[in-house]
């Protein structure tokens, strides 16, 4: 036998797995039938949809905001770069749960918000509680926090691009912005995409925090059910299976997007490293 150690571990793992399945499937308190019943109820499906929409909306705000902040950070203008630095610092230095609560209670700090000249007249004012609905508070809380993290990811991607690329595109007469959009960012993508996929997968689960705002999503829907039925753990398992299923789909998407952006870098991927590592 070539790898006796592998066969022994495989046997032990198999035995434990069979035991695990037996315990979980014969214990009636897991309430598998109820889980199956509620998993596709309209309230849970609404929650799933809301979770997905909030994930993508918050990531969209995060990515666009992150790109803008990263470009500001690298700007020669000190006001822009310091301003971006400060924004990133504030949002990374405080818990996202606190940020969500602050957005949702902003009305208690500023009962109304308006546009106008500071210390001067204001042209229009709104009630803060009307302007910042639960939806807005959730999007601002998740999106701006994400923008701060994305800014660091995008910046790492931008500085990873060879300076010769900027030189070549400047020499061809590309403007700074075009150089960024057409030359630097597409190459930075190779470095930006993997952590962004991670952030998206993480965001899917972070959206469960917006039930404090309060905004409807999967965990909110789940809690509403077990508040009535008292099937706490079974419903939490059901919600977890939903989160796991959605996360898995995102992971598959991440694989294809990474492959797309490694175009032209056939030999630069991590696979070569893995192969050499294993065959040392």
């Amino acid at each position: 036998m070539r790898h006796p150690g592998r066969w022994v571990t495989a046997a032990i793992v198999c035995y434990l797995a069979i035991f695990g399945v037996y315990v979980v499937s014969t214990n009636p308190r897991f309430e598998w039938a109820a889980q199956w019943h509620y998993a596709f109820s309209s309230s849970i499906l609404d929650g799933v949809r809301s979770t997905l929409i909030m994930t993508f909306a918050a990531m969209a705000i995060g990515i666009i905001g992150g790109v803008i902040l990263a470009i500001m950070r690298l700007s020669p203008n000190p006001i822009l770069s310091r301003g971006a630095w400060f924004f990133i610092w504030v949002f990374r230095a405080t818990p996202v749960l606190v940020q969500l609560l602050v957005w949702s209670y902003l009305g208690s700090l500023f009962p109304s918000l308006g546009v106008g000249i500071p210390f001067g007249p204001s042209f229009h004012r709104w009630e803060t509680n009307q302007l910042i609905s639960a939806l807005m508070a959730a999007l601002l809380g998740l999106g701006l926090n994400e923008a701060a993290y994305m800014a660091e990811i995008v910046r790492a991607g931008i500085v990873s691009v060879d300076a010769g690329q900027v030189e070549a595109s400047s020499a061809l007469g590309f403007s700074r912005l075009r150089t960024m959009r057409m030359i630097v960012l597409p190459q930075a993508m190779r470095v930006i995409i993997p952590p962004t996929g991670n952030e998206t997968i993480s965001m899917l689960k972070t959206t469960s925090l917006i039930s404090v705002v309060p905004y409807y999503e999967l965990l909110y829907a789940t809690r509403a059910i077990y508040a009535n039925t008292y099937q706490v753990i079974p419903m939490l398992i059901m919600a977890s299976l939903w989160y796991a299923a959605m996360s898995s789909v995102l992971m598959v998407g991440q694989f294809y997007i990474e492959r797309h952006y490694s175009r032209g870098f056939a030999h630069a991927g991590g696979n070569a490293v893995r192969r050499r590592w294993r065959s040392r």
Partner: peptide, 22 residues
């Protein structure tokens, strides 16, 4: 813009090519 316009009159070739890999 003015610098970019001036640069268009001048082509440059680099030691390490600096082609756009993507």
């Amino acid at each position: 813009q003015q610098i970019a316009r001036q640069r268009r009159e001048v082509g440059m070739v680099f030691q390490r090519f600096n082609l756009f890999p993507h």
